[in-house]
Design a protein around this nucleic acid. Sequence first.
DNA 1: TCATTTTCTTATCATACATCAATTTTTCTA
DNA 2: TAGAAAAATTGATGTATGATAAGAAAATGA
Lengths: 193, 193
Amino acid sequence: MEPIILEIFGDIAFTKNELQSISDALKKIELKKGEFLLTEGAEVNSTHYIHDGCLQTYYIDYSGKEHTLQFAIKGWWISDYIALYGKEKSKSVSFIECIKDATLFKISKKDYDNLCNEIPKINRFYIHKLESAFAAFQKRILENLTLSAKERYINFINTYPDIERNVKNYHIASFLGITTESLSRIRKEIATQ
Amino acid sequence: MEPIILEIFGDIAFTKNELQSISDALKKIELKKGEFLLTEGAEVNSTHYIHDGCLQTYYIDYSGKEHTLQFAIKGWWISDYIALYGKEKSKSVSFIECIKDATLFKISKKDYDNLCNEIPKINRFYIHKLESAFAAFQKRILENLTLSAKERYINFINTYPDIERNVKNYHIASFLGITTESLSRIRKEIATQ
DNA sequence: TCATTTTCTTATCATACATCAATTTTTCTA
DNA sequence: TAGAAAAATTGATGTATGATAAGAAAATGA
């Protein structure tokens, strides 16, 4: 278990006891492509570290369209954060689907909170992760406000080349907030210039 | 100073020593409408609690258009979080302008970190704030992906009636990602139905 | 309170992106 | 590796919102 813990928490030096507590809190999950980590309406009380594979958090609107909030690959964390951290607690508004066979490590919010209280190194790690994620999502809002679909696409493939390799174009379209047809036209435009 | 500290930290019970540490970290700032708390390119190393008034974080794009990331009124915190928490640290990408005479309390990130390390109650408070803010901004991304301009406007005035009272319609338009003319049409449509 | 500035509205026209409907290309699987 | 399914592309057309320009209404401040 130790190498995984070091991978998850960025090579923090832990004591034997700390390693044990962390190990107790983590649960390994294996998912096949097409399986769900979470479905709409389910209770949300945990977050998940991706060791391998690719997952997608998406919302389905009244007309059946998918809207992607997040992709996650090796090194990322995934959950329904609107439910996990929001006011109307605990019921998921989204689906989290495995889109490439994956191995993850699940930790409940409660266990994570306890680890933060017991182990200051974990507390700092968690705050740092939260802060970075917050900045990244603020940036995304700003980009959605300021950039055209074409600019957002170019931005996406430059910023997340590893994700591009793992997802379909229609996934990217739903992340960018455009249709798959529009993305196709944008791609053609980029290719022929 | 004590009543302000209780206001800022949601009535947490602090010891005399704790109150002193917190008090030392907070700096009162008064701003008149039109003054800036932050301008693009400035160093960012603090966040600010709004005791009174209203402020706006916005980005100006290449064509001179304003794009609003955040409003803040009494009880909210404001900063350039992309700079404060992001990877390309410390230089502001945004402006923070006072749009209604305001009183705020500034705390540096460093002092806040120290308070978190010294006072577990503050640490928990900070994490909780971060988590809630993260959820709120995720929700905003989802709404931008799924809702029409009209729906986003209705949503905004229902969710933030206190902010609506403090800002101009062109501010709201720049928050929603539409032009002031479009917002005007939407308002007319809503009024005549 | 009046004059000036700021904000909001209205109209016309332009455009980015959506929708619908095929068709082609790629990927999967038996 | 053939056949089926999934994904991507293309074309024609529609629509929400943008751009520009002008005027009306509201807010400000001397």
